[in-house]
Simulated assay, not measured.
Amino acid sequence: MIMKLPVAQPVPLADLAPGFRLRAIGVAGAGFPSPAQDWEEDAINLSELLRLDRAGSFVFRIDGNSMVDAGISDGDVVVVDRDVTPRSGHIVIAVIGGGFVCRQLTRRGGVPYLEARNSRQRYPEQIADDTTEVWGVVRAGVRDFQR
Rank of each mutant, 00 (worst) to 15 (best):
I2D: 00
I2L: 03
M3I: 06
P10T: 06
V11M: 12
D15Q: 13
L16N: 14
P18K: 07
F20I: 14
R21N: 15
L22C: 11
R23M: 13
A24I: 15
A28L: 15
G31A: 14
F32Q: 14
F32R: 14
F32M: 14
P33S: 06
P33M: 10
W39Q: 10
E40T: 09
A43D: 15
L50H: 01
L50G: 03
R51A: 13
S57F: 01
F58C: 08
F60L: 09
I62L: 13
I62R: 00
I62Q: 02
D63I: 11
G64M: 07
G64Y: 02
S66Q: 04
V68A: 02
A70W: 01
G71P: 05
G71D: 07
S73E: 14
D74P: 07
G75K: 12
V77R: 12
V78W: 01
D81G: 08
D81N: 11
R82A: 14
T85P: 03
P86N: 12
R87K: 12
R87A: 13
H90Q: 10
I91M: 05
V92K: 02
V92E: 05
A94N: 04
A94I: 05
A94K: 03
V95P: 00
G98S: 08
G99L: 03
F100W: 10
F100I: 07
V101A: 06
V101Y: 00
C102N: 05
Q104Y: 00
L105G: 02
T106S: 11
R107Y: 04
R108Q: 14
R108N: 13
P112F: 05
Y113M: 07
L114W: 00
L114K: 00
E115L: 06
R120S: 12
R120P: 01
R122S: 15
Y123N: 02
P124S: 08
Q126Y: 04
Q126H: 09
A128H: 00
D130C: 01
T131E: 15
T131R: 10
T132E: 04
E133H: 01
E133T: 11
V134A: 02
W135I: 11
G136P: 02
V137M: 04
V137Y: 00
V138C: 03
V138T: 06
R139P: 02
G141L: 08
R143Y: 05
Q146M: 13
Q146N: 15
